[in-house]
Amino acid sequence: MVTASGSFGVGIIGAGNISDQYLQNLTTFPDLEVLAIGDLDEARAASQAEKYGVPNSGGVDAVLGDPEIDIVVNLTIPAVHVDVSLSILAAGKHVWSEKPIGVDRESSKKLLETAAALGLRVGIAPDTVLGPGVQTAKRAIEAGVIGRPLFAQTAFQWQGPEIFHPNPAFLYAVGGGPLLDMGPYYVSTLVHVFGPVASVVALGQTPHATRTVQVGELAGTEFPVEIPSTVSVLMQFEGGGQASSLYSTDSALRRAGFFEVSGTEGTLTIPDPNTFGGSISVIRPYGAVAEMVTGAGEMAVQQGIEIEQEGVLVGRGLGLLDMARAIRDGRPHVASGELGYHVLDTLLAIEESAASNRIVAVESTVPELGAIPADFDPLARTF
């Protein structure tokens, strides 16, 4: 429903840490109008509403019961993503959910089937892959800048979210961990580049049975680690490409956003898929072996050719905006529920492989993914 101000009505359920990142952007997109924030902690919802000039707040019903709200943003914890999303659909509203779509295949399938039966849409984060960084890199690859993509290497490693998050236990519970928390950014980007995942094989380890909160009121509190905190992955794609990935919260050395794609005619670096922009460069292969060695007999430093980003750089909420415009235009939105399910299916297959030491096929697939046009302007009024 387009509101009286000529924008698409939006509500938010969940006023926790990540709500700031969404509200900073959603309240600046002219095509969207945030009308209400709901949370079990109504005082927290009221505080966020006041901070960002949102007119209404309260419990969940303050959002689901508002007839002007057409899309609801689900920012709850992963364990209840499906339950909350189903309640949003039951209220007759489209869903945009933080990743992952759910924590198991059965309930996540039910969510998509329910939405289809009701004629409603489901969009799933991350939408970082819709930003100028990844989208410019995707267009370059599709234009043949590195020839035929062959394989990718990605890495995300650091000490873990307990060094900044005041209550990080849920990130080490079932549905969390570096794989389920950060994997959606990397796997979504890989699927944008190579297409659907066909199979995976992985190894996992859990060096510490408990972790300790480092900041905030709970500092010094121990909590259990329910999932592998380091996972090494090999992936095979339906189209023949391959990828190797590392996800770890057991590394003193921080390496985030490492993402390289090599093809028959060069290698391309993609920006951190947990951001909306960044440096993109292409490294060309040398023409002859002699050119690779300097006069001192050392390997020459390979210089990348920078590719200029195309598009307006914003932040979280971009995928929701694309979904709102797609609803109006009658076209598919890019960060679809089906993509979100395929990413979850892949991540669960990785968990199963790490637990069983065997190759696991990924049963789901997705059609060729759309793209965000270079002239997509989040700050323009198009309604």
Rank of each mutant, 00 (worst) to 15 (best):
27 T>D: 03
211 R>T: 08
343 V>P: 03
61 D>P: 11
296 A>C: 02
104 D>Q: 00
87 S>N: 05
113 E>I: 08
357 N>G: 05
349 A>E: 02
248 S>M: 12
231 V>R: 00
225 V>C: 10
109 K>F: 09
45 A>S: 12
105 R>T: 05
341 Y>T: 05
156 F>Q: 05
260 E>M: 12
79 A>N: 04
177 G>A: 12
114 T>D: 09
290 A>N: 14
121 R>D: 13
329 D>Y: 00
252 A>V: 14
181 D>V: 10
264 T>I: 11
334 V>D: 01
363 E>M: 10
120 L>E: 10
137 A>D: 01
43 A>L: 12
279 S>T: 13
281 S>L: 10
155 A>S: 14
355 A>K: 05
348 L>A: 06
376 F>T: 14
163 I>V: 15
159 Q>V: 15
23 L>C: 11
344 L>S: 11
219 A>Y: 12
90 A>H: 06
347 L>T: 09
137 A>R: 01
17 N>R: 15
124 I>H: 04
371 A>D: 04
69 I>M: 04
55 P>C: 06
25 N>H: 06
20 D>R: 09
382 T>E: 08
236 Q>F: 01
267 T>V: 05
371 A>Y: 10
202 A>W: 06
268 L>S: 00
105 R>K: 12
257 G>I: 01
113 E>S: 14
245 S>Y: 01
350 I>S: 06
107 S>H: 08
380 A>K: 12
78 P>W: 02
64 L>F: 04
350 I>Y: 08
224 P>M: 10
98 E>A: 08
20 D>C: 03
84 V>R: 00
36 A>W: 01
319 G>E: 06
196 P>G: 08
35 L>Y: 03
275 T>I: 09
338 E>K: 12
25 N>L: 03
368 E>S: 06
73 V>A: 06
319 G>S: 14
211 R>C: 03
190 L>F: 07
375 D>Y: 07
359 I>Q: 13
78 P>C: 01
209 A>D: 13
177 G>K: 00
253 L>D: 12
368 E>L: 13
177 G>R: 02
112 L>F: 02
323 M>T: 11
376 F>M: 04
306 E>Y: 06
160 G>A: 09
211 R>I: 10
357 N>P: 00
292 M>V: 14
326 A>G: 00
359 I>V: 15
274 N>A: 15
186 Y>G: 00
220 G>D: 12
196 P>N: 02
121 R>N: 13
147 G>V: 01
27 T>W: 06
285 P>A: 10
250 D>I: 07
178 P>R: 09
365 T>C: 06
220 G>W: 13
5 S>Y: 04
148 R>E: 07
280 I>N: 07
272 D>G: 08
320 L>Y: 15
106 E>D: 15
251 S>G: 00
254 R>C: 11
300 A>F: 09
155 A>P: 07
133 G>I: 05
236 Q>I: 07
100 P>T: 07
365 T>Q: 11
158 W>N: 14
105 R>V: 11
278 G>D: 09
150 L>W: 00
107 S>P: 04
372 I>D: 01
288 A>E: 15
325 R>W: 05
194 F>A: 01
52 Y>A: 05
184 P>E: 13
